[in-house]
Computed example of a mutant assay.
Amino acid sequence: MAQSLYEVHTLKGGQWVIDSTYPDKDSSIEVAKQLHGEKRFEGIKVIKDTFDPKTGQGKELVVFDTSKTARERPTPPSPAAKAADAPAAAAPAAAAARTKKKPKNQDVSVALKATGWLLVIVIGGLGVLFLINKAGALFSQGF
């Protein structure tokens, strides 16, 4: 008997990430629509992941997608097939895993935003202190 699971995927920064999984289609699509309404992600999709333990084969079907129409795509080979190909593919896969890093421009952007907000807070605080000082001086001259 094939087992099915529904995965909610989110797209942010050009990368798809599994957000959550559900046993039924309706609840997964409802969550996907809520996430899409929040406008925090570039795209949302729900994938029906079906695995047949007898054959060791899996199949994924996109059932909801805010960026493209639904389509069927092949799944990775079974663990047994991966084990047979593992020695030949181990070196390139390890090298690819090491090269996937967060873009540096994203780190710089976050640092610049944080520095900007810090400057706004400090300058605003100094401005408030200056106004309090002036108001105190004016108040003391009046009496």
Rank of each mutant, 00 (worst) to 15 (best):
D85Q: 02
Q3N: 15
T75P: 05
V128G: 12
T66P: 02
E72P: 03
K25V: 00
Q34A: 04
V31I: 11
F64E: 01
K104R: 10
S67T: 13
F130L: 13
E72F: 09
K104F: 09
W117N: 15
T10Q: 11
K68T: 02
K54A: 15
V108Y: 07
D65R: 04
T115K: 10
P77G: 05
G43W: 03
P77Y: 04
L118R: 10
P76V: 00
R98I: 08
D52E: 09
K25Y: 05
A70W: 01
K113Q: 15
A94N: 00
H9R: 07
A114W: 09
A90D: 04
D24F: 07
P92M: 00
H36T: 02
D65H: 12
A86K: 04
D24C: 08
Q3K: 15
E72T: 12
V120N: 05
G142E: 06
I121T: 15
V63T: 04
D19I: 02
T99F: 03
Y22Q: 15
G37W: 04
N133T: 14
W117M: 14
R98Q: 11
S27H: 11
G56W: 08
Y6I: 10
K12Q: 12
A95G: 05
S109R: 14
T10D: 07
T66V: 03
K48H: 08
E60N: 10
P53K: 04
V46K: 03
F64S: 03
H9C: 08
I121N: 12
D49M: 12
A95W: 05
K101T: 15
A88G: 07
A93R: 09
K102Y: 12
A80Y: 01
S27R: 14
K68N: 09
E7F: 03
D24K: 13
P23T: 13
T50M: 08
